[in-house]
């Protein structure tokens, strides 16, 4: 099976126009990087995997696996939006033999795997592995056991706003409805930071699912919050159609 055929098996590329445009763009990019047909196969294969560990193990064992992943990362602009779970790639990089993961300030740091062999570090603080491996089991109260503010902020991000709100008490700052009638709430929660976590809860127009978006603590209304997420003043945000 050719790599084009393998890519074509992915659901998003069954859309004829999208498939045509993507394949043309991919071919152009792949021409620039000699081994990309092979990388494309690895990517198509990874994208079908649902389990983290087999993906990482297979990558480590594959000849040139890390090099391949690095090429995929180099293509991130192209890969963005494709169904490649990039957390797989980041974890695969983080568990490379003898590799240490550090943040931009040189602190040991990795939110998706060990920062160095079997040790889990976040913003320079060693943390329990469950923070990285099972953040969905943590609660906002667990953050109190993390000493440094940068580590608490990173772990709150890893836990996710929704999980934090589910496991603690929040105050409602504002309530309204969007243009389609969907309910919105502006929530504030103490997360052990120097400022509260302020989040706008919105309802998806298409799926009716709830989404949570963190906004600056100075925001005081749902409308102001949603406009801020698109970089606008409240008065300038006026979509005529929403899906």
């Amino acid at each position: 099976m050719s790599w084009q055929d393998e890519l074509g098996e992915l659901p998003i590329l069954r859309l004829p126009r999208a498939r045509e445009k993507f394949l043309r763009a991919a071919e152009e990019a792949y021409d620039d990087l000699g081994e990309l047909p092979r990388a494309a196969r690895a990517w198509a294969w990874l994208a079908r995997l649902e389990e983290l560990e087999p993906a990482v193990t297979a990558l480590r064992e594959a000849e040139g696996g890390h090099r391949l992943v690095r090429r995929l990362m180099a293509l991130e602009g192209l890969l963005q939006g494709l169904p490649l779970p990039l957390s797989f790639v980041r974890l695969a990089l983080s568990v490379g033999p003898g590799r240490e993961e550090r943040d931009e300030q040189g602190r040991l740091h990795c939110l998706y795997g060990p920062a160095r062999a079997n040790e889990y570090w976040v913003r320079g603080e060693r943390v329990d592995p469950t923070w990285v491996l099972a953040p969905q089991r943590k609660t906002v109260r667990d953050l109190a056991g993390v000493a440094s503010l940068p580590a608490r902020r990173a772990l709150l991000q890893r836990m996710g706003v929704r999980r934090a709100l589910e496991t603690g008490w929040s105050a409602v700052l504002d309530l309204d409805r969007d243009a389609a009638g969907g309910p919105r709430r502006l929530l504030s929660m103490d997360v052990g930071d120097s400022e509260p976590m302020v989040v706008v809860e919105v309802t998806c127009t298409s799926t009716r699912a709830l989404h949570y978006l963190r906004v600056p603590p100075t925001v005081r209304s749902c409308a102001e919050a949603v406009a801020w997420t698109f970089g606008m003043e409240r008065e300038r945000y006026r979509p005529v159609a929403e899906a």
Partner: peptide
């Protein structure tokens, strides 16, 4: 190049010009 307007980790955030 390409039809991809935006996307993130996984396909949940994928937007394509179709």
């Amino acid at each position: 190049p390409g039809p991809i307007l935006a996307g993130g980790q996984g396909s949940d955030h994928l937007h394509l010009l179709d």
